[in-house]
């Protein structure tokens, strides 16, 4: 039964507006600060409104069919979003399948196992990875990753797992799988660092209780840490998904940019963000531009929803964690 806020009482006290002598510089400063703080909400509304305005014609013309249609033909002015939605979802899914286990495992190593003097250097390295620009991953993807995938990993996958439809068909290098792998690399840092925060919030009491029952190190992690942090780790994965969906440059450079839907992960694909990046400045007709705006609107709505879910999961966890133990 703590106070509704987590703040120390002293902070709350000085946060109250000064009761006497609230002169105009004070009031106007406060209002300026409030305005600046509210720009965040205003910007979200502005972004949504502008994308909606930009896509009104397409929405009126195609309605809900836009989402399910596979047409993308500037000549006849027929547009549909399905291949791009499919490409975005599948590439992000591949990225999550790779990045979530790796990221959570790395976070576990960092919080539960690594020698203390190693922790800060590893955290720094992962933060540096997060600082690498998308376009540099794309460049590296084109000239280093793709040739290696094409000549080694993909060939091997085709040999060993070729009976699955996922790993059949011709190998070009640029492909859905390459896109998924590059996204995975790019969301690894955020998944790792958020997971680490979650794991660090697991009370030591949990671990000590498990040790007291005679559990081994791994059993402590599995029983006491992972089960306690499960919800938060799920939130970290959803946050990673939000980033994955919107990744643009690196994906555009390695995914092949062809709006085809194929069972094979070796086939090229196209994502919402990539098609906007590639075709926006070439859009010649109004309807073409409108269709691209509608793709942007779809991308925006999905990423905002995913981000809201992620924030809610991470928030309720950190809010409830302190009261739930004991």
């Amino acid at each position: 039964m703590a106070s509704p806020s987590g703040d120390p009482a002293s902070r709350v006290a000085t946060k109250a507006p000064p009761s006497s002598g609230a002169r105009w510089p004070d009031i106007s400063f406060r209002w300026l600060a409030l305005l600046a703080a509210l720009t965040t909400a205003a910007l979200i509304v502005l972004v949504g409104w502008e994308l909606y305005r930009g896509s009104r014609q397409a929405i009126a013309q195609f309605g809900l069919n836009f989402l399910g249609s596979s047409a993308w033909d500037p000549v006849t002015d027929k547009y549909g979003a399905w291949p791009f939605i499919y490409g975005t979802l599948v590439s992000s899914l591949i990225a999550l399948v790779i990045a979530v286990p790796l990221g959570v495992a790395a976070a576990l190593y960092l919080t539960e196992m690594a020698p203390l003097q190693l922790r800060q250097p590893i955290v720094t390295i992962i933060e540096m990875l997060a600082a690498v620009p998308s376009v540099i991953f794309g460049l590296w993807g084109i000239f280093v990753l793709i040739p290696w995938l094409r000549d080694h990993l993909f060939v091997w996958l085709k040999h060993t797992l070729g009976f699955l439809p996922l790993f059949q068909g011709p190998i070009y290098g640029v492909s859905m799988l390459a896109g998924g792998i590059i996204i995975a690399i790019m969301i690894l840092p955020i998944i790792t660092s958020v997971s680490r925060e979650i794991l660090r919030s697991v009370p030591d009491l949990q671990r000590e209780a498990a040790y007291a029952l005679g559990a081994t190190h791994w059993e402590v992690i599995r029983i006491a840490v992972l089960s306690y942090a499960r919800r938060g780790l799920f939130g970290a994965a959803v946050l990673g998904l939000g980033r994955a969906l919107g990744e643009t440059m690196a994906v555009t450079m390695v995914i092949g940019n062809r709006p085809v839907i194929s069972a094979s992960l070796f086939a090229p694909s196209y994502t919402l963000a990539s098609v906007i990046a590639n075709e926006f400045t070439e859009a010649t007709t109004d309807m073409y531009l409108n269709a691209l705006f509608e793709l942007g609107l779809v991308l925006l709505v999905v990423t905002i929803l995913v981000n809201i879910v992620a924030q809610l999961m991470l928030r309720t966890l950190s809010g409830g964690a302190s009261g739930k133990v004991n």
Binding site: T40, A41, L43, I44, L46, V47, E50, L51, G54, L239, G242, R243, L245, G246, E247, T248, A273, I276, A277, F280, L292, F293, G296, L299, L300, T303, I304, V306, N307, I308, A310, Q311
Partner: peptide, 16 residues
């Protein structure tokens, strides 16, 4: 809202 704003894909900023 700041965290949600932070999650908006950068390509969308270009369009807006």
């Amino acid at each position: 809202t700041a965290d949600v704003l932070n999650g908006i894909p950068s390509i969308v900023w270009g369009m807006v």
